[in-house]
Design a protein around this nucleic acid. Structure first.
Ligand SMILES: [Zn+2]
Ligand SMILES: [Zn+2]
Ligand SMILES: [Zn+2]
Ligand SMILES: [Zn+2]
Lengths: 165, 165
DNA sequence: TTGATTATGTTATACTATAACAAACATTTT
DNA sequence: AAAATGTTTGTTATAGTATAACATAATCAA
């Protein structure tokens, strides 16, 4: 049984998160008859290993180290595949990518992004979703995709700033 | 007295919108003792003239036509100034900029973006805002800036698609 | 006027992402 | 197994977005 998403909690076994994300990805691709190739799996692992969202170009050196071609198309193709399967999300305001903790069913992407430690945690709030749906309905707009990127201070960094102040 | 925001309505006098936006910008800059220079004013006008969000590089030719330097820094500086004053917003998922219809007080940026006609209208929904605030408060996150970009079909384009189907 | 501040011009470069086509690999059909 | 097909990766080039750095010009405050 999967443990709770760690959110901004730092004291968890992140190796476990990574391993679980890879396992989920493998079974999900098997179900869908898709190939989680070595490159794709490596990119997914790299994205998960980082606590911060990672830029595409940050991933290239690790691809090179692993003996793969490390030209931009390689990593962008892998990221595209992973995004299509809901395994990673792109954060537009950062031009960066993060692993999705529950890729089984497609969902809207929403993040709380700390401007201090750069960590981003996925936000899945039914009330936010509902409020958006209501507002869109009011003006006759049909929602297909939501992007919510909230920047601010995570609990840890907020404490830290208030101590300094 | 300002008229209602036109939203996705097409049958309005857009010249009037533009003129009002420029007037507001001028008085706002006067109040704040800031300079709405010719370049800044032109960029603001260009952004307002377009019904679609405009990319920075799309603005350059018009700057050249008006006799200004048209290297990228020129337009990015103007956009930066306008953003700081709340006169335009950047839409991260489009790398594009739109005029803000009520720049008097700073506010979160939220948009409904039509994937068919590319129009983007600003969304200012208290319920959405509240739901986000509640959700953030639950995890101890302090919100500083919200970016909401909802992609879908505007009323016009939705009608059009359903006729074709 | 002098000096400080702000804005613009100019050149170069960094960063992000995709196009296009060839080669390698996997899968299915014969 | 061989051939045909479809998918993935390699490779080169280029498009698109944004900023650094420094010189010049305009504005503002003594
Ligand atoms: Zn997710
Ligand atoms: Zn933080
Ligand atoms: Zn606005
Ligand atoms: Zn539309």
């Amino acid at each position: 049984m999967p443990h709770q998403d760690p959110g901004f909690e730092t004291d968890h076994n992140h190796q476990h998160c990574i391993q679980q994300a890879l396992d989920t990805a493998r079974s999900l691709c098997r179900e869908r008859s898709l190939r989680l190739t070595p490159i794709r799996e490596l990119v997914l692992k790299l994205v998960w290993q980082s606590h911060q969202p990672m830029g595409a170009y940050e991933l290239l050196p690790a691809l090179a180290d692993a003996g793969f071609n490390s030209a931009p198309p390689t990593v962008y193709r892998a990221l595209e595949f992973l995004q299509e399967q809901g395994l990673v999300h792109r954060i537009a305001s950062l031009n960066a990518y993060v692993g999705c903790p529950h890729p089984e069913h497609p969902h809207t992407s929403g993040f709380l992004i700390c401007r201090h430690c750069q960590r981003a945690v996925e936000l899945d709030s039914a009330p936010v979703h509902q409020a958006l749906a209501d507002t869109a309905a009011d003006v006759g707009f049909e929602i297909e995709q939501e992007m919510i990127e909230v920047v601010g201070l995570c609990p840890d960094c907020r404490d830290e700033e208030s101590r300094d102040a």
